[in-house]
Design a protein around this nucleic acid. Structure first.
Length: 366
DNA sequence: TCTGGGGTCCTTCCGCCA
DNA sequence: TCTGTGGCGGAAGGACCC
């Protein structure tokens, strides 16, 4: 889906179309309905806090604002941009709507989060047929039909990559964003994929990109040209081989149409850093609240957890975790709070904290 | 102006046990 | 009884993704 959260907000507030809009920040900054019927929107200018941009509209991106950026920094670049708080309930609703719109045409779907899916097109009627002079006309038409249905059911645009595998589809879907349809085959890899920066490969993050850069590798084609043995030397057997395969556009992962959750968690960043001793009571009640929320999440989805853990982030952004595996799975707020308290006792708390989280792993259906 | 919240998967280390 | 080896679960951290 294209700029998903922001696009959902534009459905609600169509008067913002064409403007730089940024989604993020806390519950405040809600638009205010004026007596004359128009809405007063919060602006980025003067933002104070620790929020980040979750999504920015394309006009906002043109001003240098992108997801993950601190809102203070975003405010410096685009003070006049509209700021809207996140509304996950609305995004989940539209997420279900777009997925069922796709499923009406192509039922084999792999979920990749709130705004992304992989779709199996291979065996759909007509997908293997040429259309006029286009040997891939059949599958192109199916993909277009999916896009049309998503727009009709949700009012939202999406971008699609039609290729032989998931790795290439992910890259291809981003070649013509927003509202694009890109079809490519293995034969197109040298021309269309090799000029791209290595970061465009799903699985090469900032760390791997830095290490590749140190080897003089910036683009996918440069990676493809390297001896796989050399990559194995630098990155280990599994990752080295994978880098080589990925650079050649090869990927044999099957579609995964069903998955069970592995863990669930709740965490919060404080408005100001807290001290273990001086802010003991506040810290304790945050932990209690997180445990209670997590218990509700577990019970709503029908899971119990055998491993309870905590996550701490200190003022210097260093993060530590502690966890505890129990004899019996549990989903009770008090028991989660107790286990989290035991974990907390194992951490040296001399530095101040900016974040506290509680996690439930080892999930079992109840 | 410092950097959210919710996840998955992988690696490494350690203790326990056969 | 001592030593080595290997599997396994748990714990911790890290990379990456949406």
């Amino acid at each position: 889906m294209d700029a998903f959260y922001a696009s959902v907000e534009l459905l609600r507030y169509p008067e913002l179309k064409g403007q730089p809009v940024v989604i993020g920040g806390g519950r405040r900054h809600q638009p205010v309905l004026q007596p004359d019927g128009t809405r007063q929107f919060a602006r980025l200018a003067g933002y104070v806090g620790r929020g980040v941009v979750t999504t920015a509209t394309y006009p906002a991106r043109d001003l240098g604002v992108g997801s993950g950026m601190g809102l203070m920094k975003a405010a410096a670049r685009a003070p006049q941009a509209v700021l809207l708080p996140t509304d996950f309930e609305a995004y989940r609703r539209l997420s279900r709507a777009f997925k069922s719109a796709v499923a009406e045409i192509a039922p084999q779907i792999e979920d990749r989060g709130i705004d992304e899916i992989y779709i199996e097109l291979t065996h759909l009627p007509g997908a293997q047929e040429p259309l006029g002079l286009d040997p891939y006309g059949g599958v192109r038409a199916v993909a277009q039909e999916i896009r049309n249905n998503v727009r009709q059911r949700t009012g939202l645009s999406c971008s699609v990559g039609v290729t032989p595998n998931k790795l290439l589809s992910k890259i291809a879907s981003e070649l013509d964003k927003p509202d694009g349809l890109t079809l490519l085959t293995e034969a197109d890899v040298p021309r269309l994929i090799w000029p791209l920066p290595v970061r465009r490969i799903n699985g090469i993050g900032p760390k791997a990109a830095d290490r590749l850069l140190a080897l003089g590798i910036q683009r996918v084609g440069q990676l493809a040209a390297r001896d796989p043995a050399e990559l194995v030397t630098h990155f280990g057997r599994a990752y080295g081989r994978w880098l080589h395969e990925a650079a050649h556009g090869r990927d044999d992962r099957p579609l995964s149409t069903h998955s069970e959750p592995v863990s669930m968690s709740r965490e919060t960043t404080f408005a100001r850093d807290l001290h273990a001793v001086r802010d003991r009571d506040e810290l304790g009640s945050v932990l209690t609240e997180l445990a209670a929320q997590l218990a509700v999440d577990l019970q709503k989805k029908g899971y119990a957890s055998r491993t309870i853990g905590i996550k701490l982030r200190f003022e210097d952004f260093k993060t530590v975790t502690r966890d505890l595996t129990l004899a019996q799975p549990l989903a009770d707020a008090g028991a989660i709070r107790h286990a989290a308290g035991l974990c907390l006792k194992r951490v040296d708390l001399t530095r101040r904290l900016r974040l506290l989280g509680v996690r439930a792993g080892g999930l079992v259906k109840v």
